[in-house]
């Protein structure tokens, strides 16, 4: 049996979290020393029957109390700032991050790369690039935990959450479901396989399916009839989707929302909840007609349209 003390450091985040962890460990050790060295000394010196001075001290109480209230307070503010700073960066994926989609279900992880490659309970990623996972659950709450990267995010049904990391070290590391999800919770595990970028490209090429995710999405866009209104010279006026993604959208009620993953998802499943300004609320809901997987493919297609300019404004 081995005695490992720390997980591998395989992401840009891992050393930062470990530094903070060491900092907190050191603080704890110092605090324990400050409390227990005097305590043990008192217990020994003032044991009953030992002949020592026991007359009461004459120091103002409030000075002592204020000291051991204020100093720890300042210390914890320091640690708060340190920890929140790392966390804040961790919650904002860089713009150039590559997207990979993850669907959790009892009890497996289904992953699809934008190139169309699918995997189950395995995630292949290259070193040196930020990876952003777009995740959702088909049933209960799961949690995507990669200890070697020091990242974890609960994966919720009914909405998208994201988690990002930048791998630094080639290797195979644990993937765990960290939120209890039922009978085989401890079997909902797998691996993240970090590869050199060239190896990753090769891996993508070898397993390349017929369609990329955006191409699957484009096919769905036609099959489900979305294109009938949202493209070409349609009879019914519906917003064009080119150039939409990542832009602010004015709504009929005067609000302005960002066209992000959540907005696209809600617009497909709950079309009446947010009506784009200037359009009639005529879109039917696709809830129940479309799987989480197809929804993600549509999303990536619409996202890919975001790079194009709408024809009218050209």
């Amino acid at each position: 049996m081995r005695f490992p003390l720390f997980p591998d450091q395989a992401s840009t985040l891992a050393p930062k979290v470990d530094e903070l962890y060491f900092g907190l460990t050191l603080l704890s050790a110092i605090m324990m020393a400050i409390i227990f060295l005097p305590m043990l000394y008192f217990l020994y010196k003032y044991r009953r029957g030992n002949k020592v001075d026991r007359s009461p001290l004459r120091i103002p109480l409030w000075k002592i109390e204020v000291t051991w209230t204020v100093i720890p307070l300042l210390i914890v503010f320091g640690f708060y700032t340190w920890a929140a700073d790392i966390f804040f960066d961790q919650e904002r994926p860089p713009a150039e991050a590559m997207d990979i989609t993850v669907i959790g279900k009892q009890w497996m992880w289904k992953i699809q790369h934008p190139e169309g490659n699918r995997e189950i309970n395995e995630l292949h990623v290259p070193t040196g690039r930020a990876v952003r996972l777009i995740m959702t659950s088909q049933d209960v709450i799961h949690s995507f935990f990669l200890p070697a990267f020091r990242v974890k995010q609960d994966v919720l049904p009914g909405r998208y959450v994201t988690e990002w990391f930048q791998p630094t070290k080639v290797g195979t590391y644990h993937l765990f479901c960290a939120e209890y999800c039922g009978t085989s919770h401890s079997g909902m595990v797998g691996h993240v396989i970090v590869m050199e970028p060239a190896d990753y490209e090769e891996w993508l090429r070898v397993g390349k399916p017929a369609e990329t995710m955006a191409q699957s999405g484009e096919r769905l866009f036609r099959e489900l009839g979305c294109s009938g209104c949202h493209m070409g010279n349609s009879q019914i006026r519906a917003p064009r989707l080119e150039g939409l993604f990542g832009k602010p959208v004015p709504l009929a009620d005067g609000q302005i929302v960002m066209a992000d993953e959540k907005y696209i998802r809600d617009s497909i499943l709950l079309p009446q909840s947010q009506i784009a300004a200037g359009y009639a609320p005529v879109m039917p809901t696709f809830a129940g007609h479309i799987s989480e997987e197809e929804l993600l493919q549509l999303l990536l297609y619409i996202k890919s349209l975001g790079l194009k300019q709408p024809e009218e404004t050209r």
Binding site: L27, S28, W82, A83, A84, I86, F145, P147, R150, K152
Partner: peptide, 16 residues
């Protein structure tokens, strides 16, 4: 050790 859990970045790793 409660401080470790209050510290956001460490908590993300050790929660659950």
């Amino acid at each position: 050790t409660g401080l470790f859990l209050a510290a956001l970045a460490v908590d993300v790793h050790v929660t659950d």
